[in-house]
Design a protein around this nucleic acid. Structure first.
Lengths: 224, 224
DNA sequence: GCGTTTACGATAGTATTACTATCTAAATGA
DNA sequence: TCATTTAGATAGTAATACTATCGTAAACGC
């Protein structure tokens, strides 16, 4: 199986981390560390120690740690969209495409061999815990102008268009799908930490329950 | 009209800010400042300067700024629940109660004279922008054990019970209502900053559109 | 094969943040 | 009146999020 890579918005980084050993190291180890420490406790200094490099060297790749988070989560959305493309490719019915998308959005993530040096399982946990921090900032407008949220928007648009094919009169396709994308992470977080805010448990079939919840939410909502 | 106050979980503060002039000042001015600066840029030092007090004095009321945010947002949930109680009190049909709740959750907030020294309009903007930061932390579990999220949970439970009265077989009442509570803030944020993720605009009838989106989401979902 | 760019490690330094500690004065209250 | 509570004043600390400069080794172009 060939190794793939995504072309991410060039404003996300100063030097493309996919092209060098140090860059790949930064990505790989930062995923582990943010997953372990949480984004607040994670610093470039700690990362530098772990990869036997220096703070200054990391700053040559990323302007700051917020951009690194945007990069990682941007990568995640690209990866999700790639997977959705992969599995909807052969389908023609937009209902089937939508259903498949929801399954892929929700499904328990496994390590994807097609992408070296990214631990998708840890990255998924990062998205669950840190996603909202990417846009809940005072610089959201300037970040957005630079296109740093392109991955999320692109995915949203793709699925919203299928919804509009199913029911052209449904007026809230974008709201519905952004809600689904975010809720799919949030409900997992609640199940783990604030269980009285959810009906999803900690058991093995949590992903199935979540899928049923969201699938019914979406298909009932868009029904004419 | 009498002035009311809420009894918040005592773990939220070290000294009850509602009981002293300094405390009330801390609350009132921190709402203005967090609204203006955002939670990240807001510091106890800046607050102390603005109210002509000292950092040390503020630390006598709140252990840290995260607890202050939890306090303010806890206050907000209490206020929302109080308003929902006020308007559903006279209703008997759980469908009506649910519908009214959604209206109150979504509605454009106005200054509430019943509560001195809290600017509900600014506080609502804080909830829109900062809510997720209250629980997306590494200490969420210990915060939760201390009951710091009680306001959110209480509101969730109340509304979930109405859903279960309407359709006892709907299996995701808690997930649905926590989704609605959070989405109601998120979609406003998207409308202001990431408009391609929502169908809600910046226009005057945004609250009406949001209400229709969420009302249809909820009632179609719980239909047997 | 020689000069030049590039990459990166090493080191130092800075303003700010999020506290903690201690001391004193004024107000309160029994 | 005396003890306690409350808060202002001041000082200090470890950590964070950078910025700046320097030296060197490898790679790259011609």
């Amino acid at each position: 199986m060939p190794t793939l890579s995504f072309k991410l918005n060039a404003h996300l980084y100063l030097r493309d981390p996919q092209h060098t050993v140090l860059g790949q190291n930064i990505i790989q180890v930062s995923v582990q560390m943010i997953d372990r420490l949480g984004f607040e406790q994670f610093t470039f200094k700690k990362l530098a120690e772990e990869i036997n490099s220096t703070e200054a060297s990391i700053y040559r790749y990323f302007e700051n740690k917020h951009r690194l988070l945007l990069y990682l989560i941007g990568w995640y959305w690209n990866w999700l969209e790639y997977r959705i493309d992969l599995f909807t490719n052969s389908l023609t019915d937009p209902r089937e495409k939508l259903k498949t998308s929801i399954r892929i959005i929700v499904e328990e993530k496994k390590y994807d061999q097609a992408f070296d040096f990214i631990d998708e399982v840890a990255l998924h946990r990062i998205v669950v815990a840190e996603l909202d921090k990417t846009y809940l900032t005072k610089q959201v407008d300037s970040d957005n102008k630079e296109g740093l949220f392109g991955g999320f928007k692109s995915l949203c648009k793709k699925i919203a268009e299928w919804i509009n094919q199913i029911n052209p009169n449904y007026p809230s396709a974008y709201s519905l799908i952004s809600t689904v994308l975010i809720t799919s992470k949030q409900q997992i977080f609640f199940a783990d930490h604030l269980p009285s805010l959810t009906n999803i448990g900690k058991d093995d079939n949590r992903y199935l329950k979540l899928e049923q919840f969201l699938e019914s939410l979406v298909f009932k909502s868009i029904q004419p």
